[in-house]
């Protein structure tokens, strides 16, 4: 798809910047937009990183190899399966950015739907036979080795800058693995689950957003995905005890990280269409 542009962005002699590539699969563009949203830092980033392939920002692209690839989006077509393998081969370091790339995204609701992909196709398109897609939406790590997964729907700007800075310094990025509850307490926010009886995924959701939802008085909806060693079933029991019915619980857990292990098997276990070959 991009091969014909080769040569447009040849590395100028003496350019010793790190080559950075940004790739898009099934997604909303919001995570790569996060890089363009670094208004104060983007030109400084461009002093150290050369955008070797970043279609949303530049017409100049080269064929790699790339020092760092940022990958947004999930795998939903047969072509994309081969494309991600090709990108992996050309990338020294591959970082997935956001819930789509890490967990399949909101489009992975198809994996959990009680209708098959043919039905989904015919609901949206008058001529479904013209649309080619896989039965499931899967994370990048299901297909190739991933060096780092940056969470969020969308990712956090400061975490992205931390990853880039850490790469330049040759160190591991400092990313929290605690739950949203820790950030919520650190901000001195009133607990919306205890004080407001709002169903909140904060106890099982990875921190990094700054406890945004509790700060506006709503329960966390889990857009950063499951925290390390999250005990989701315990939270589910607690919410059931508070009178939240299973329909609502399922909808709460099954949004932007619906297919993430820890969320997808709650509140009831579901079959894995990628394994049953549906």
């Amino acid at each position: 798809m991009t091969a014909d542009r080769s040569g447009d962005g040849e590395v100028p002699a003496g350019d010793d910047r790190v080559s950075l590539a940004v790739w898009k699969f099934a997604s909303c563009d919001g995570c790569q937009l996060t890089l363009l949203d670094c208004e104060d830092e983007l030109l400084a980033v461009a002093d150290r990183f050369r955008f070797a392939h970043f279609l949303e920002a530049s017409s100049a692209v080269d064929d790699g190899p790339f020092d760092v690839s940022l990958v947004e989006g999930s795998i939903t077509t047969a072509d994309d399966v081969s494309r991600i393998h090709d990108i992996r081969e050309r990338s020294a370091v591959l970082v997935t950015i956001g819930a789509c790339a890490n967990a399949g995204g909101v489009q992975a609701l198809r994996n959990l739907a009680d209708v098959d992909v043919d039905e989904l196709r015919s609901i949206v398109y008058p001529s479904p036979e013209l649309i080619s897609t896989l039965a499931s939406s899967t994370p990048i790590a299901d297909h190739v080795e991933v060096d780092l997964e940056l969470p969020g729907c969308p990712i956090d700007r400061n975490q992205l800058l931390e990853v880039l800075a850490a790469f330049l310094a040759g160190r591991a990025p400092n990313l929290p693995t605690t739950s949203v509850c820790v950030e919520c307490k650190a901000r001195d926010l009133v607990c919306v689950a205890v004080a407001g009886a709002e169903p909140c995924l904060g106890p099982v959701t990875r921190s990094g957003c700054g406890a945004l939802c509790p700060s506006v008085g709503r329960g966390c909806y889990g857009c950063f995905g499951p925290a390390e060693a999250a005990n989701t079933s315990s939270l589910v029991e607690r919410l059931r005890g508070d009178g939240v019915d299973d329909g609502r619980l399922t909808r709460l857990l099954h949004t932007f990280n619906a297919w993430a292990p820890g969320f997808r098997d709650q509140p009831v276990a579901v079959a894995d269409p990628t394994r049953s070959g549906r």
């Binding site: 099934a26 995570c31 909101v106 489009q107 398109y125 909808r251």
Partner: peptide, 26 residues
């Protein structure tokens, strides 16, 4: 690639489209 938002919204609560459809476009 198609993401089938209109189909996946079926069966969701009427309060969910603002959060879910936001993900159509960042």
């Amino acid at each position: 690639p198609p993401r089938f938002f209109e189909a996946l919204l079926r069966g969701r609560s009427y309060t969910e489209p603002p959060d879910i459809t936001a993900r159509i476009c960042g």
